[in-house]
């Protein structure tokens, strides 16, 4: 079994090595975009079963975002929805024979966490302005500036490590069980891995939403009289 901390290049495009997570991501992207295109062509005012499921998912996402951010979910819907769906499908792709989930590799999780980090900065600055957003690092006092800066880094790393650890461990456990006990024994663990994958996708999306919501709301709360008084 290969080390999960090392990715081998399958081939190179010029100087760029194309690794297995990248190829798996391309396949997942192709499937998702193809499904989106097929669904888009069949969108109707009177929805079919697939459209009902899709609307249920987007509606649930909107409700979650609205609950966390306490505002209109439209500006965050695409980012949070894409992260959730990608992480979910990527985690579940490990159930296919011979496919290793892209999220079982640190690079993919790091890319996801980077997107969340960038989105946090973008929405924080967009909502509060650059100065207003920077001021949030001095809340509640300026002494907290180093800790707040470190928090931005550590929570991003925690996102990476949480997803990576859960998915990679699931892949490893199944691999070890396969090597020890044969074909059918790992099936319960694979089912558990599906559950873990769904939970981790939900946690990653919700945490990303929480971080963005915090960046948006901290400046708003800091500017409000009630918050200042308390």
């Amino acid at each position: 079994m290969n080390s999960p901390l090392v990715v081998e290049a399958l081939f190179h495009i010029g100087p760029v090595p194309i690794t297995q997570p990248v190829v798996a991501t391309w396949v997942i992207m192709a499937v998702m975009v193809l499904g989106a295109l097929l669904l888009k062509r069949r969108l109707k005012q009177r929805p079919g079963k697939v459209q009902v499921v899709a609307e249920l998912i987007t509606g649930a996402l909107d409700d979650q975002i609205r609950d966390v951010v306490q505002s209109d979910p439209a500006p965050y819907r695409v980012l949070i929805g894409t992260i959730f769906l990608f992480v979910l499908i990527a985690n579940w792709s490990g159930a296919l024979p011979g496919v290793e989930p892209p999220t079982a590799h640190l690079e993919t999780d790091a890319a996801l966490a980077l997107m969340v980090f960038a989105a946090t900065l973008y929405h924080g600055v967009r909502s509060n302005g650059l100065v207003g957003y920077l001021k949030t690092f001095a809340e509640p006092t300026w002494v907290m500036i180093p800790l707040n800066l470190v928090e931005q880094i550590t929570r991003t790393f925690s996102l990476i490590i949480r997803l990576f650890g859960n998915v990679m461990s699931g892949v490893f456990v199944i691999g070890i069980m396969l090597s020890l006990a044969g074909l059918l024994v790992p099936i319960p663990l694979m089912a558990l891995d599906l559950l873990t994958g769904a939970v981790q996708a939900y946690i990653f999306a919700i945490l990303g939403c929480v971080f963005i919501g915090a960046a948006v709301s901290e400046g708003r709360d800091a500017g409000s009289p009630e918050r200042s008084a308390s």
Binding site: T25, L43, T58, T82, E107, A111
Partner: peptide
């Protein structure tokens, strides 16, 4: 390289899903 490619992939996926899934869904709703 993989981090960079995956980031690009996710940005592209973000744009594609936004264009072909989330916005049409929001529009039809």
């Amino acid at each position: 390289w993989t981090i960079g490619l995956q980031t690009i992939n996710l940005v592209v996926l973000l744009w594609l899903l936004g264009r072909f899934f989330f916005r049409p869904m929001a529009k039809v709703v």
